[in-house]
Design a protein around this nucleic acid. Structure first.
Lengths: 246, 246
DNA sequence: TTCGTAAAGTTGGGACTCCAAGTGTTCTTC
DNA sequence: GAAGAACACTTGGAGTCCCAACTTTACGAA
């Protein structure tokens, strides 16, 4: 504001303005580090830092060997939360999200619960849980990583003894039919730096933080399933709608 | 993993492990840039980058002229979401949060709605809304910044004609008593880099991203109030509990 | 015309240096 | 003993240079 702001901020603000007003449309290449140093009369450090900040904001994306580009508009991710909906809705909703072609891959395997999951599911650390890892893609781009853990005795195998079924969508519905009703969902949301595995799976550029949703489905005082949903903060917005009943 | 990871990651992982296992307890000073370069045999760039990453993760905090220190344990921020609760609960809940002494300052003033708020409240840009800005503190430390906007004709003035009342807590309850019932809350959650004003108000160290919750209270198809809640991603966790009814 | 290679450009990690502004501590002066 | 000045140290911003890995483009040979 005053005039003696850090130099890199000048670069950030200029580029941000150009992206905002369309001078740099989605997909357009950002001037390279070398070009920025010349154009703005700043050092490489400032130019690089400016690019990193814009990348962290999700406005641009860096591709090694190629350059930085203005990002496409972020996709809206509606996560309906209603009393009567299928509680697997996040995935169903993804499919329709904004007319994008959405796919998800998943893989289940039995693992030891471990400390954190045991705490969340009220199990022993040594107990076996079914871990399922989803990678959700829209238009081929990885967008969301979800990992869910279910107690083995409640797990997929019981409801889908036939191996390999793409049965995720109606698992909770079948549980419900079997008399197990979800009565509460508890979530904890926070931001953090992605772990290497997550960066790999989500193809994350550096500097992008993720939104981490820890979700546990409860049936009365018995936890049924817990999951970790990791969403790149720059790509998605989680939209909750919580109808409060009549 | 392999062994040819970036150098700075070695420093990050070592320090992170020491913080995790208590070798570096909360409040403890982190070795300075100069010390890290010597101890890990790395350049200043790597040492500095490692510190920046840990700061962004919220594990440490940098104080100019003094040093980096291990952060205190992050505070749990329960945000109850029940059918029958006072929907001002976030603030009420803050007060009890984890036995911390919590306070909040607020200030209301009439302002023009502007584009974004007009969209969210279905108003004209030129319409007047009541803007209220809260700074929430636990133990003196600023923790949360909330800004709410209400249509002027539904605003505080109507329900609290007596000026200066600390009437925030029961505003929505009084509205409810007056026959205006909240039937739905819609939220949009995303992460982003804090704006300068937010960094000032929240006393944010560099590199800490914020969680931004856009919340709108609806009564049928009429929006009552919209608010922006900005929470430093490293300090807080938003915990939602969404009971689904009988 | 096609294919493969070489050259040029770009990012991301890293080393080294300098400086302004702020903090702590010590030491001197009153 | 108290007050203030000087000094050492730390962070954060900035500059410069170097390199590996990767992409894009251009060019020449088959």
């Amino acid at each position: 504001m005053t005039g003696n702001d850090p130099v890199y901020l000048r670069v950030v603000e200029e580029l941000r303005a150009q992206i905002a007003d369309g001078t740099l449309p989605p997909g357009a290449p950002i001037p390279s580090r070398a070009q920025l140093t010349q154009r703005f009369r700043v050092g490489e450090t400032a130019a690089r830092h400016a690019l990193r900040v814009l990348a962290a904001e999700g406005l641009i994306i860096g591709k090694v060997g190629s350059g930085h580009y203005v990002r496409e508009k972020s996709v809206l991710y509606p996560l309906q939360r209603c009393r009567n909906i299928d509680h697997d809705a996040p995935f169903a909703a993804d499919m329709q999200a904004g007319g994008h072609r959405a796919t998800w891959d998943w893989r289940s395997e039995p693992v030891k619960a471990g400390r954190e999951i045991a705490r969340r599911l009220r199990l022993d650390e040594a107990d076996t849980v079914i871990r399922t890892r989803y990678v959700f893609r829209t238009d081929g781009k990885p967008m969301q990583l979800a990992t869910s853990y279910e107690p083995a005795e409640l797990g997929r195998a019981q409801f889908f003894p036939e191996e390999g079924t793409n049965g995720r969508k109606s698992l909770l519905a079948r549980m419900s039919a079997a008399g197990i009703k979800i009565t509460d969902i508890r979530e904890s949301v926070h931001t953090r730096v992605p772990e290497p595995a997550e960066s790999d799976l989500l193809d994350l550029p550096t500097g992008v933080h993720v939104l981490h949703v820890e979700r546990t489905h409860w049936s009365g005082d018995r936890p049924l399933e817990t999951s970790d949903i990791v969403v790149p903060g720059d790509r998605f917005r989680l939209v909750y709608s919580v109808p409060l009943g009549a």
